[in-house]
Design a protein around this nucleic acid. Structure first.
Lengths: 263, 263
DNA sequence: CTTCTCAATTCACATAGACGAACGCAGTTC
DNA sequence: GAACTGCGTTCGTCTATGTGAATTGAGAAG
């Protein structure tokens, strides 16, 4: 993804090449894994001699580390440090955290907070299910917005053009149940807009169904919350209960928002 | 952290200025919080005109975001994304995770994994206590090594010169109980080396005592595990139980290491 | 021991960026 | 409403850095 985010078709906007490359390099390694200088230079289309100085700089600063052998470059520990700072400075997270806890306590399932970034959603917080059977997930992970309940919830509050733009024409199936036709996905998002919540069943993780609602912050909502439940634990109205829980969580946040003048 | 440049007393080491600055800027914001372009340029000692292009580049790439007002710059969502990639690629974490779970289950207290970075330790994983009274902590947060049980455990396996170097002459008290004399801290570390585990009582967080042991990976150990317990829950041999749990966790990892040829 | 391969590294030139100073734009203060 | 203050932005020059080709070094293969 990263390579050349180039916001499509706009001004050349004086950009600092070496700084951009340093950041791209971090993204590249994050997205496609570690590599040698040569491999990375090929993957990114940068002359290896250029990469050389760059990599050295980044190692000195602790943003990259090498293998024991010294030839393979991977992310350094500074990659971790900034993440907590990002989360600390996030007003949405701070406000949503108590509600997240409540939903987690009420449902006893894995609960995520996520945010739209490009066509993906990035998890910004989670609460894990107490059950031994639980999803593998992590704060910072990105998944396509259109195939997750969380992302669909966000998309359902966007105007049509945005939905169109953020659902690609060709969708890779992550599981046999993934909806791969753009039109179908758009229909699903439309239903979510009507219902007020989004669903995704085994489309990104086999055996798991997710439910998502947006968080009522700001006028363009980029944040949402979802609950992921193994299908084996659904039934007996438990699905409805989870949806109710999510909707009332959102209602609670919305009312808080009216009382306190936050941002 | 940032601002140093000039790797102490060795080769001039061709460094890429603008890349270094981009990274320093991330560190700066992570360490001392967001700011306007002017503030940041002053904090970092960079001409504002130089910072201007840099900041724009980083915003375009999603590594920085602005306030709603557009004047205050803070970390962007990419800061989150790399962190999960860092953790994913970490062999130590993958191996230690099950043991972490066990210690968490056995003690029902907050358990941390951490790694030495300069004079600090950075948390790389945690399991939270189920008790409502629990520490505030987060993966990615850094604390001084010398004042935490986790850090002291790591230091206790380092040679004397390293300990000397990593404990500063002047220590800021984080709580009234913080040990602030370098000599005292070195003595405590020495005791930890003898005992095989490190302790810290209310020195970084009032009301909390922590116990730490190193993880037996590699020959120079940079990783350690700790348990943080509210003092009110100690007593009745619970302290000994926790220490035993940690020591046996380490023993388990050590034996695993002998069987599997990892890394 | 020689040759191949794949890695990092260095060098000398063309270019991209760092810098200080000047500018534009709000919101405040007098 | 005029002078200030704090902010981002632009411009032209000097310098740092990106680049391709050539070099070194370590293993593996012959």
């Amino acid at each position: 993804m990263s390579q050349q985010t180039t916001t499509p078709g706009d001004a050349p906007a004086a950009t600092v090449k070496s700084a951009a490359r340093a950041l791209d390099l971090l993204d590249e390694i994050a997205a496609r894994g570690p590599g040698t200088q040569l491999q990375l230079s090929q993957r990114m289309g940068i002359p290896k001699s250029s990469l050389h100085a760059l990599v050295r700089t980044m190692v000195v600063k602790g943003w990259l580390e090498t293998d024991p052998t010294g030839t393979v470059y991977k992310l350094g520990i500074h990659a971790l440090v900034v993440s907590s700072a990002y989360l600390d400075g996030d007003a949405v997270l701070a406000q949503a955290a108590p509600v997240l806890d409540e939903v987690s306590a009420a449902t006893e399932e894995t609960v995520h907070l996520g945010r739209l970034d490009g066509t993906d959603v990035v998890y910004t917080a989670k609460r894990e299910s107490a059950h031994p059977l639980r999803m593998h997930s992590a704060v910072g992970r990105r998944l396509p917005a259109y195939s997750t309940a969380l992302g669909r919830a966000i998309l359902s509050e966007q105007p049509m053009e945005v939905r169109e733009a953020l659902v690609p024409d060709s969708i890779d199936a992550m599981t046999p149940h993934t909806t791969t036709r753009k039109a179908d996905v758009l229909t699903i998002i439309d239903e979510a807009a009507t219902q007020g919540y989004a669903v995704e069943s085994e489309e990104s993780c086999l055996g798991v169904r997710c439910f998502g609602v947006t968080l009522p912050f700001g006028r363009t909502t980029h944040d949402a919350m979802s609950v992921s439940v193994p299908i084996s634990r659904l039934g007996n109205g438990r699905e409805d209960f989870i949806i109710e829980t999510l909707l009332s969580a959102r209602a609670k946040l919305a009312s808080q928002r009216e009382h306190s003048t936050v941002r």
